[in-house]
């Protein structure tokens, strides 16, 4: 091979190598173009509203409708407001009580139905799931009748054991939020049950058989077999429970509207009160931003401690 041939070969080789490499790079770059629709969608429907809410939270309005720059005034007002702290307390109670209670009762129901029923399985599954698909308006009216101390169903039951309810659970400052939490648990436990039923049915039968042979039953079976194998369901329910807590609105709005005297206020009703009833869009936006920050913080904690794999891993649930 001459020197000229060698150069030709080298040039030819470089050309041969570079052309597909450039094409590959171009193709890789072109792949990013496919993200544009998703990014545009995110920008329009998520990014822009968030920025708009943040911007709006920096303004306030007079009772005569004139808008003025308030800077961080809405946030300062919020932090000084006892109602805001009451709302925060209520949201914490809501999440801390409803999520674990729904999971425990839902899990127990699922286990009982799957283990101890045969022909009536479908009936029980449906019956416990009915509240989930029932209109929240109907639920609110029914539970108002249950709680009514004068003629309510609860009072009728208490009368049988000689007790008289002389105050309204929904109308009392100390009990309103707990009365609502009970209704929420009743409404959504069927959903947890359904998730656990799906989880239980995904566990291979052999594992149960092997556990029984090894003598595991009751608490030991739950602690060392079921709970670890259902961790995906647990994490999903935790995630959905937190989202549900932050989105709580219709039940509270219909049953107490945040009262009495803000005792059952939740973020949804608090935002609605200022944004829609009072027309204070700036203050309502400031509350929304706080909720956003809170949601972001909770999401971060979930990702940090629970990871994200359970959301997409197959076979867990």
């Amino acid at each position: 091979m001459t020197e000229e041939d060698s150069v030709l070969v080298q040039v030819g080789t470089r050309d041969a190598m570079d052309l597909p490499l450039n094409r590959s790079r171009w193709r890789r770059s072109a792949l990013y173009l496919y993200e544009i629709p998703a990014l545009a969608f995110f920008g329009i429907f998520v990014g822009y509203p968030i920025l708009w809410v943040i911007y709006t939270s920096l303004f306030a309005a007079t009772v005569h409708g004139a808008t003025y720059w308030a800077g961080l005034g809405n946030y300062a007002e919020l932090l000084q407001s006892p109602t805001f702290w009451m709302t925060l307390r209520n949201m914490a109670l809501w999440g801390l009580i409803t999520i674990p209670v729904q999971m425990i009762i839902g899990g127990l129901l699922a286990y009982a139905i799957e283990q101890y029923t045969i022909r009536s399985k479908a009936v029980f599954r449906t019956v416990y799931f009915v509240p989930v698909v029932t209109s929240v308006v109907v639920i609110a009216i029914v539970w108002e009748q249950i709680y009514a101390p004068y003629y309510g169903i609860l009072q009728a039951g208490l009368t049988e054991i000689g007790l008289h309810l002389n105050f309204s659970l929904l109308g009392s400052y100390d009990t309103a939020i707990f009365a609502l939490i009970i209704v929420n648990i009743w409404e959504w436990t069927g959903f947890s049950m359904l998730m656990y039923i799906a989880g239980l049915n995904a566990i291979p039968r052999e594992i149960f058989d092997a556990s029984h042979i090894d003598g595991a039953s009751g608490w030991r079976l739950s602690r060392y077999v079921l709970i670890p194998l259902l961790s995906g369901v647990n994490k999903s329910l935790l995630l959905l429970g937190i989202i549900g807590t932050l989105q709580t609105f219709p039940l509270v709005f219909l049953m107490t509207n945040g009262g009495p005297d803000n005792a059952s206020q939740v973020f949804g009703t608090y935002i609605f009160l200022h944004g829609f009833t009072e027309g204070q869009t700036g203050l309502a936006s400031a509350i929304s931003v706080v909720v956003l920050i809170l949601a972001a913080g909770l999401t971060f904690l979930q990702i940090r401690y629970l990871g994200t794999q359970f959301l997409s891993r197959k076979g867990d649930a």
Partner: peptide, 13 residues
């Protein structure tokens, strides 16, 4: 007022 008025609604109940 009736006992438990605090938790009651005028409409529809």
């Amino acid at each position: 007022f009736q006992a438990g008025a605090l938790g009651d609604q005028a409409y529809p109940t």
